[in-house]
């Protein structure tokens, strides 16, 4: 085996998996190219855009700021984990309110919104803007995203597990 290749074990969206990765790869790169999980996107690689957001051992994080091998045995949830068995209520609300176009920013927007709603099921607009502030969207101008999160929270069923009917 090439000197720079090594085996990485991750639990990705509930499945324990291994893949051969290059030691120099970022977590987002390993997820996409070695594990075939393309929900997290590559945007800035500086931590600014949030396109690569995942949940790592329960906490949301920007996966471009991690060296993949440093996360051996971690539990990772990606955007894909949200829609097992259908879209979540939050995702439906994004759909209904035109809160995305290209979808590149969705990992960051949805994980940030979900994290906020877990802490505070009834956030005001200001809190919503704060929560998504680490994420850049080049398509929507943000207002539609804020509206989607607000309308979803106002419906009174703001749990992340909530799956739309």
């Amino acid at each position: 085996m090439d000197d720079d290749l090594t085996v990485l074990e991750l639990t990705v969206n509930g499945n324990r998996r291994t893949a051969t990765v290059d030691r120099r790869e970022l977590l987002v790169e390993a997820l996409r190219t070695r594990f075939g999980i393309t929900g997290p996107k590559i945007g800035c690689l500086t931590g600014d855009c949030g396109a690569c957001t995942v949940r790592l051992d329960g906490l949301i994080t920007k996966s471009c700021l991690h060296i993949a091998v440093a996360e051996d045995r971690a539990e990772i949830e990606t955007l894909e984990s949200m829609s097992v068995g259908g879209l979540t209520g939050l995702q439906e609300s994004f759909w209904d309110n035109n809160a995305f176009q290209c979808g590149y920013c969705l990992s960051g927007m949805l994980f940030s919104a979900a994290e906020l709603l877990e802490r505070d099921p009834k956030p005001n607009e200001d809190e919503i803007r704060q929560a998504i502030s680490g994420n850049l969207c080049r398509c929507t101008g943000y207002d539609a995203i804020v509206t989607a999160i607000k309308r979803y929270a106002d419906r009174g069923s703001a749990t992340v597990e909530d799956v739309a009917q």
């Binding site: 931590g47 600014d48 994080t61 700021l65 960051g108 940030s112 906020l116 998504i132 502030s133």
Partner: peptide, 10 residues
Amino acid sequence: VTGGAALRNQ
């Protein structure tokens, strides 16, 4: 601190 919760977690 900017960068959102993801950055603050890290």
